[in-house]
Amino acid sequence: MSQAPNDRKYSAEHQWALPEADGTITVGITDFAQETLDDLVFIQLPEVGSEVAANQQVATVESVKTASDVFAPMSGTVIAINEAAVDAPEKINEDAYAAWLFKIQPSNPAEYDALMSAESYLAAN
């Protein structure tokens, strides 16, 4: 059974969004997503400085089974990417909620409120 920590919100496309103290949002894929994909072998992340829109495809994760798009849960500017995840995609399989993918400086912080709670996300999946 997948898990979903209550300290963040979730998109219908299986991304999580964790608000940081500085107002930025850390983004990753959910435990459900990594379980469905199985063993991750490759990650392509957006470029730092990229402007992204909510629900826009911005990254790709590939497993031994398939490739899957990763969508931005919020609009904003990509301010950091997790090179460690690119170098070792299996870290996401080990702990999907610790192995983040990228960070966004949101252009519309209110979009966070439209994302699902952990309870809503788990009920939908």
Rank of each mutant, 00 (worst) to 15 (best):
M1G: 14
S2T: 08
S2L: 01
Q3G: 08
D7T: 11
D7K: 14
Y10S: 00
S11H: 02
S11W: 01
S11M: 02
A12N: 13
A12P: 06
E13D: 11
H14A: 06
H14I: 06
W16V: 05
A17Q: 04
L18C: 12
P19L: 11
E20H: 08
A21G: 12
D22C: 05
D22N: 05
I25Q: 02
V27M: 01
V27F: 02
I29P: 02
I29T: 10
T30I: 06
T30V: 04
T30A: 10
T30M: 10
F32V: 11
A33P: 13
A33E: 13
A33C: 12
D38A: 12
D39E: 15
D39R: 12
L40H: 04
V41K: 10
L45R: 07
P46G: 10
V48G: 06
V48I: 11
V48R: 13
S50W: 01
A54D: 06
N55G: 03
N55F: 03
N55Y: 06
N55L: 04
Q56D: 03
Q56N: 00
Q57G: 11
V58Q: 02
A59E: 00
A59M: 09
V61T: 05
E62C: 02
S63G: 06
T66G: 12
S68C: 14
S68P: 01
S68D: 08
D69C: 05
D69S: 14
V70D: 00
M74I: 09
M74T: 05
G76M: 09
T77E: 00
V78K: 04
A80G: 11
I81G: 02
E83M: 13
A84G: 13
A84H: 10
V86F: 13
D87H: 11
A88L: 11
P89E: 00
E90K: 15
E90L: 04
K91S: 13
K91L: 14
K91P: 11
N93F: 02
E94Q: 15
E94Y: 15
D95I: 11
A96V: 03
Y97V: 12
Y97N: 11
A98E: 11
A99G: 08
A99V: 09
W100P: 02
I104M: 03
Q105C: 06
Q105L: 13
P106Q: 15
P106S: 12
S107Y: 03
N108R: 02
N108H: 04
E111D: 00
Y112C: 00
Y112E: 01
D113F: 02
D113Y: 09
L115F: 04
L115A: 10
L115Q: 10
S117I: 08
S117F: 09
A118K: 05
Y121P: 00
Y121F: 08
Y121R: 14
L122G: 01
A123G: 13
A123E: 15
A124E: 05
